[in-house]
């Protein structure tokens, strides 16, 4: 439809603003800066402890990274809608424990069948937690923080009830699968990296991802154009739960057992990765690449501190400093934009 309102002015928007040089735009990109900082941190640790740059240590870091990145991916989706998911840590534990119980019952069968069933059970538990989160938000009218706090507590409690506090199972075959087979990657790690890549494409290049950002930006506007906001939010919490379930299975394979405290505290590290990666906790803005880089940064900082003989207790302090730095940088960039 061609509608001429005032055919007097030549449009200027067709000519994109090229006044900013490419390197200035690059330096204004938070994800690029994050990548530079991550490389600098890596170089610092590698310079001080040469073994930090070895393939073996890289492999360890990839494995550690895989226990965090999918939680960060799910949390990115949730935070993009303006919500938060505190339940992912306990979902990792609960799915691992329930999966371990299921696998214990199938111990006489082939390893492939056992692990396949275990994976399905873990993902199923994650989806169930996501559905409960969504139901609490939409039907009990709880804010996401409280809703997921409820499931976080319930999940952690259920783990202790089911296990009595002790890990379940002893599956050395599963542990063997998490040993790197292709250079620094184990097969499960490759699957997790592939899922992360697909999730990134899905978030930034699909209608589902666009709807996710729209809901977080302005839920009324999203509804006004016909987006089913409830369904979108439900899908995102279910996705986050499912990814936590996959992480639960990966942690089970790594430990060879379902540990009731396997995911303790992981939710906060996942949220930290999302925040450091440049997402706004108010919703509507997030970059999965930022979350992935931040997850890698947190992984190598934790690992590097151990190599530097720093007490592991300082890990949380280091992560807290990273969050503070990222949040401050974000606030400064925002105020600079507003004043310009």
């Amino acid at each position: 439809m061609s509608i001429i309102v005032d055919p007097v002015q030549e449009s200027s928007f067709e000519k994109p603003d090229r006044s900013q040089l490419w390197y200035r735009r690059l330096l204004a990109n938070q994800q690029f800066l994050l990548l530079l900082v991550t490389i600098a941190i890596f170089v610092f640790f590698a310079f001080n402890r040469h073994v930090f740059a070895s393939a073996g240590e890289f492999g360890n870091n990839v494995t550690n990274f895989c226990t965090l990145v999918l939680l960060g991916v799910g949390e990115t989706y949730v935070i993009a809608t303006g919500g938060i998911d505190l339940s992912v840590g306990s979902t990792v534990s609960l799915s691992g424990v329930v999966g371990a119980i299921a696998m214990e019952h199938l111990a006489m069968h082939s390893e492939l069948l056992v692990l396949s069933v275990g994976t399905v059970v873990c993902i199923g538990i994650g989806i169930l937690v996501g559905v409960v989160n969504s139901a609490l938000i939409h039907y009990a009218r709880l804010v996401p923080f409280v809703a997921t706090l409820v499931t976080w507590g319930a999940g952690a409690g259920m783990c202790l009830v089911l296990t009595g506090g002790a890990p379940i199972g002893q599956n050395s075959g599963a542990i063997a699968l998490t040993v790197p087979k292709i250079w620094i990657f184990s097969y499960p790690a490759l699957i997790i990296i592939a899922i992360t890549f697909v999730a990134g494409l899905f978030l930034h290049l699909s209608r589902f991802g666009r709807f996710t950002f729209a809901v977080g930006s302005n839920a009324f506007a999203a509804r006004a154009v016909g987006i089913n906001v409830k369904r979108q939010v439900t899908s995102v919490y279910v996705l986050s739960g499912a990814l936590a379930g996959i992480t639960g299975m990966f942690v089970y394979m790594r430990l060879g057992s379902g540990a009731p405290t396997a995911g303790t505290g992981q939710e906060l590290i996942a949220i930290a990765a999302v925040v450091i990666g440049g997402a706004r906790l108010t919703g509507g803005s997030a970059r999965l690449s930022g979350t992935v880089i931040a997850a890698w940064m947190i992984t190598i900082v934790s690992s590097g501190l151990i190599f530097m003989n720093v007490s592991p207790n300082y890990n949380q302090v280091a992560v807290a400093l990273l969050i503070a730095t990222a949040a401050t940088a974000q606030a400064l960039r925002k105020s600079a934009r507003q004043s310009s």
Partner: peptide, 27 residues
Amino acid sequence: QDLALCDNLDIVQNMYLGREETKFSML
């Protein structure tokens, strides 16, 4: 009255919100 626009999305994304054009299932 409040225009129902998403501030964190750009003009193109707002214009096509809910009616996105896709190619091979991608935007």
